[in-house]
Structure formats: structure tokens, C-alpha cells
């Protein structure tokens, strides 16, 4: 039972990342009708917003280390610590939460630039060409990041306050063996919050209502005198922010490197297909579902019976779903039936 609970939790945080990326992919696809292979790159860019902020905050200079007396020792001390003392250290400690705030405007801007600068010229082109150009863009973005930050993963730490593990087991009366990192729990809550926010935006605001109307019938909404294009651009920006935030929050779990976006993108596409192209709840549900399945498949009990199943389970599920339910779990008729 303990192991069972742990695997579900494990699956939920990975599934959270899939769900957030898949949500953005589906949003862009549903509104603009564009298949965005650069969406994984947005996830990666978000993570590197945090890395850049960390680099910026820890710009340091050599300072005489007073604690060593028998020779002249120097240590690197960040300017922030020199200027602000303990406050400075605390700021550095909280670099990931701060980057979340920073990432929102940055990713929104990146999203706008991408949509206005490139994607808008591809509405009328074929899906193959959209895939190709965004694939090229993804390569360019990740190579730029590689040139700037190097090819190695860059470790990032969660704030000290949440770096420990939560004793979930004892809280639920399952024994003390079940502990789980606080940060991953936070990631899960954060994912739920973001998903909730996006759904609330689409379903509870007038703006979102118009966007949904535009997704259903773009032309009619346009005829009513609404500039639907402007709203769709905003939606693209929101999708970029969602992917970026997922990336920022994921940095303490997985040290970011330049190709993390591509790795997640492939899986997220599978998630979208399983969930049903164009269905937002489908994308989220499939994300969590596949995350959990993957984490169960990596249990040693399962691996003894079916060796290597953890590597392929997601793809297997995708193949089975497409053979049994070609539209995906929640796909509707007429969406992307080419």
C-alpha cells in the first residue's frame, strides 16, 4: 500500500509536467490550428529563465575568507550577500519562486514575438509545413541556449524551507516509511492551480467565452465584429507562459539542460494524442494518467515480470488507444480528421 501511494505521487508530478505542456499544445492547436513542435522549447526556455536569474543573482567577487587565518584564503561571495547580508542570501535561496514571477512576463513576451513573428504566417500552410518550421525553430532555440549556457545540466535547488521531505505516511496513518519531497508536492499543487486557472479563464470570463466561441467557429465570431486574432495571440502567449512555468517549477526536480524540451515534447505529443487532439480536459487527464502509468511501470515488481516496460509503456498505451479509440480518450468527432 505504501509503495502504491508513492508510485501514484511519483507519477503525478511527472504527469503534471506532461499535462501542462500538453495543455499548452492543445490550446495552441485548438485556437490557431497550428501544430507547434517548438512548444517543448518553451518549456526549456522557462527553465532557463530560472537558470539565468540564478546566474544573475550569484554574480560574485573574491572576498578574503576571515575564518582561515594561517594563509590568505579567498572565497566567492555574491554581491547580493555583500550588499544585503542575510536578505541577499535569502533572495538567492528563493531563486526558483522568484523566477516564477519573472517568467510570466518573459514567456508572455516570447510567446507574442513567436506568434507575431513566425506562427501567424503559417495559419494557411499545411500541417506538415507547420511542423517543419516549428521543428526548425526548436532546433535554433535549443542551440542558442546551448551556446549560451553550455551543454551540461545546471543544478538548481528548491528553497531550503521546502527542500526536505513531507511525512505523508504518518499524516495519513500509513506508517512513517512514506515520505515525499515537499517540492514535488508543491509542483503537483502548482500544476493543479495552473490547470484550474486556465480552465477558469476559458470558462468563467467573457474573454474566455469569446475565445471558446472562436475555437468552435472562427468565422462567425469574426463576422460579429470581434477581433478574434488578437485574442488567439493572447492565448498563444498564455500557452507559452504555462509551458514556461512548468519548466521553471521543474528545475529543482530535473537539472535543466538544452535538450530537455525535446525530450518532454515527444512525450507530450503522445499525451495529446492519447487525450484526444483538441480536447483540453483530455490532455490534462491523459498527462496525469500516463505519468502514473509510467511510474507504476518502473516499479521493480513490474519490471521483473516485463523487463524494460518502463521505457515503452507510454508508447504502448498510445498505440493501443489509437487502435481501439482512434480519436483518443476524449477526442470529439470532426477535430483534426484529415
Amino acid at each position: 500500500m505504501d509503495a502504491f501511494l508513492l508510485q501514484i505521487l511519483n507519477g503525478l508530478d511527472k504527469g503534471g509536467a506532461y499535462a501542462l505542456i500538453a495543455l499548452g499544445l492543445t490550446l495552441v492547436f485548438g485556437t490557431l490550428g497550428v501544430v507547434n513542435f517548438a512548444h517543448g522549447a518553451l518549456f526549456m526556455l522557462g527553465a532557463f529563465v530560472a537558470v539565468a536569474l540564478q546566474n544573475l543573482l550569484t554574480i560574485s567577487k573574491q572576498v578574503r575568507d576571515e575564518s582561515v587565518t594561517f594563509f590568505e584564503a579567498y572565497k566567492e561571495t555574491p554581491y547580493l550577500e555583500i550588499w544585503l547580508g542575510d536578505t541577499g542570501l535569502a533572495i538567492i535561496d528563493y531563486v526558483v519562486p522568484i523566477s516564477i514571477v519573472l517568467a510570466i512576463p518573459v514567456m508572455l513576451l516570447i510567446g507574442f514575438v513567436m506568434e507575431r513573428g513566425l506562427i501567424q504566417y503559417f495559419y494557411k500552410r499545411t500541417h506538415a509545413e507547420q511542423i517543419l518550421v516549428t521543428f526548425g525553430l526548436a532546433i535554433v532555440l535549443q542551440e542558442i541556449i546551448k551556446a549560451w549556457f553550455g551543454a551540461n545540466p545546471i543544478p538548481m535547488a528548491a528553497p531550503d524551507a521546502v527542500s526536505g521531505s513531507a511525512a505523508i505516511g504518518s499524516a495519513l496513518g500509513l506508517g512513517d516509511a512514506v515520505v515525499y519531497p515537499w517540492w514535488r508536492l508543491l509542483y503537483l499543487l502548482f500544476t493543479l492551480f495552473i490547470v484550474g486557472a486556465v480552465f477558469a479563464f476559458l470558462n468563467l470570463t467573457t474573454y474566455g467565452m469569446v475565445v471558446r466561441a472562436g475555437m468552435a467557429d472562427r468565422e462567425t465570431v469574426g463576422l460579429l465584429g470581434i477581433n478574434i486574432q488578437k485574442r488567439f495571440t493572447l492565448v498563444f502567449g498564455i500557452a507559452a507562459v504555462v509551458a514556461g512555468l512548468a519548466g521553471v517549477m521543474y528545475t529543482p526536480i530535473l537539472p535543466p539542460d538544452y535538450h530537455m524540451g525535446m525530450d518532454f515534447l515527444v512525450l507530450s505529443f503522445v499525451v495529446v494524442v492519447v487525450g484526444g487532439m483538441g480536447s483540453l480536459p483530455g490532455a490534462v487527464a491523459a498527462g496525469f494518467l500516463l505519468g502514473i502509468l509510467q511510474s507504476f511501470a518502473s516499479m521493480s515488481v513490474v519490471k521483473d515480470v516485463l523487463p524494460g516496460i518502463d521505457q515503452i509503456i507510454i508508447y504502448l498505451v498510445a498505440v493501443v488507444i489509437l487502435l481501439v479509440r482512434p480519436r483518443g480518450l476524449m477526442g470529439r468527432k470532426g477535430v483534426m480528421e484529415a
Binding site: V35, A128, I131, V266, V272, M277, A318, L322, A338
Partner: peptide
């Protein structure tokens, strides 16, 4: 069994 982007994604997967 699928065409368009579904096909691309399936082959990729």
C-alpha cells in the same frame, strides 16, 4: 491508421 499530424506523431512515438 491515422493521417496528417497523427501519423507524424505516431511514427515519432
Amino acid at each position: 491508421r491515422r493521417s496528417g499530424i497523427y501519423f507524424s506523431i505516431l511514427t515519432l512515438a
